[in-house]
Simulated assay, not measured.
Amino acid sequence: MDAADAQQARTASHSSFVDLLPPEVTCKIFSQLDVQSLCRASETCWSWNRTIINNDDALWKPHCLTARAVCPREIDRDIEHNTWRETLLRNYQKSKVKHAWLSGRYSNIRSPLNLPKRFMYPMDVDTWGEILDAELKR
């Protein structure tokens, strides 16, 4: 093995699969991740984030459409001015909290002290109105 081959072997061993596989394949791999895993992968490797995750809206759109099932008004408003990724990141936690409220998770709360603080999220008046309507129909 000459010096050039040795250098090429060292470079290849330091490359991630994102650098070695065709972009279509890496996108397919990342598209199989849930939201939390996709966010973690973007924080794990600068190259992954820069090359694929941050720049490929197709990775974020399905997750955003899932959140839209709970927060259609919020998602529709945000997607006009933001990417799918930005829209999802702005509305993901809200969609989780809103879903919990609408599914009745907090229906029997007797006091604000009984609400789990780490699962709460600030919401606008229209969202609270939707939640109140759902509670009144129960």
Rank of each mutant, 00 (worst) to 15 (best):
residue 123 M to P: 07
residue 37 S to K: 12
residue 22 P to A: 09
residue 93 Q to I: 13
residue 25 V to H: 10
residue 45 C to H: 11
residue 54 N to K: 11
residue 51 T to G: 01
residue 119 F to I: 07
residue 39 C to P: 05
residue 39 C to G: 06
residue 57 D to W: 06
residue 127 T to R: 01
residue 85 R to K: 11
residue 3 A to C: 05
residue 54 N to Y: 10
residue 83 T to F: 00
residue 55 N to T: 14
residue 70 V to W: 15
residue 33 L to I: 12
residue 6 A to I: 15
residue 9 A to M: 11
residue 120 M to I: 03
residue 111 S to D: 11
residue 33 L to S: 07
residue 11 T to F: 06
residue 137 K to C: 11
residue 118 R to V: 07
residue 131 I to P: 03
residue 40 R to W: 15
residue 52 I to E: 01
residue 70 V to I: 15
residue 28 K to M: 10
residue 112 P to Q: 00
residue 97 V to W: 09
residue 74 E to A: 09
residue 92 Y to T: 12
residue 61 K to T: 07
residue 65 L to C: 04
residue 67 A to S: 12
residue 119 F to N: 10
residue 138 R to T: 11
residue 118 R to E: 05
residue 87 T to H: 00
residue 83 T to G: 01
residue 34 D to S: 09
residue 105 R to P: 01
residue 98 K to T: 14
residue 80 E to L: 02
residue 104 G to V: 02
residue 94 K to G: 06
residue 11 T to M: 04
residue 112 P to R: 00
residue 31 S to Q: 11
residue 115 L to P: 03
residue 8 Q to H: 09
residue 119 F to S: 06
residue 91 N to S: 10
residue 122 P to W: 01
residue 44 T to Y: 12
residue 91 N to A: 12
residue 111 S to V: 10
residue 117 K to V: 14
residue 41 A to Y: 08
residue 17 F to S: 02
residue 65 L to Q: 10
residue 78 D to A: 04
residue 1 M to F: 12
residue 33 L to T: 14
residue 69 A to V: 00
residue 80 E to M: 01
residue 51 T to H: 00
residue 82 N to L: 08
residue 4 A to S: 11
residue 113 L to V: 11
residue 86 E to G: 02
residue 55 N to K: 15
residue 101 W to H: 13
residue 26 T to W: 03
residue 73 R to P: 02
residue 6 A to V: 13
residue 109 I to V: 12
residue 131 I to E: 04
residue 66 T to Q: 08
residue 132 L to R: 07
residue 55 N to I: 06
residue 6 A to K: 06
residue 125 V to M: 14
residue 7 Q to F: 09
residue 21 L to C: 06
residue 107 S to V: 08
residue 129 G to H: 02
residue 41 A to P: 05
residue 108 N to D: 13
residue 47 S to R: 15
residue 121 Y to R: 04
residue 24 E to L: 04
residue 59 L to N: 07
residue 66 T to W: 04
residue 71 C to Y: 10
residue 66 T to P: 01
residue 97 V to M: 13
residue 16 S to D: 07
residue 16 S to M: 03
residue 36 Q to K: 13
residue 18 V to K: 04
residue 60 W to N: 05
residue 65 L to W: 11
residue 7 Q to R: 15
residue 129 G to S: 05
residue 16 S to A: 02
residue 26 T to G: 02
residue 22 P to L: 02
residue 85 R to C: 03
residue 24 E to I: 02
residue 41 A to C: 10
residue 68 R to T: 04
residue 37 S to H: 09
residue 29 I to M: 03
residue 52 I to H: 06
residue 56 D to I: 06
residue 121 Y to K: 03
residue 33 L to P: 12
residue 133 D to E: 14
residue 12 A to T: 12
residue 66 T to L: 12
residue 98 K to H: 08
residue 115 L to W: 06
residue 107 S to Q: 14
residue 12 A to Y: 13
residue 21 L to M: 09
residue 37 S to Q: 09
residue 32 Q to G: 08
residue 116 P to H: 03
residue 55 N to M: 06
residue 23 P to N: 14
residue 81 H to D: 05
residue 28 K to Q: 10
residue 89 L to E: 09
residue 75 I to A: 03
residue 78 D to T: 01
residue 89 L to R: 09
residue 79 I to N: 01
residue 87 T to G: 00
residue 116 P to R: 03
residue 4 A to M: 14
residue 68 R to N: 12
residue 100 A to H: 07
residue 126 D to P: 02
residue 128 W to N: 01
residue 59 L to Q: 12
residue 5 D to K: 13
residue 68 R to L: 07
residue 103 S to T: 15
residue 126 D to R: 15
residue 99 H to K: 12
residue 54 N to H: 14
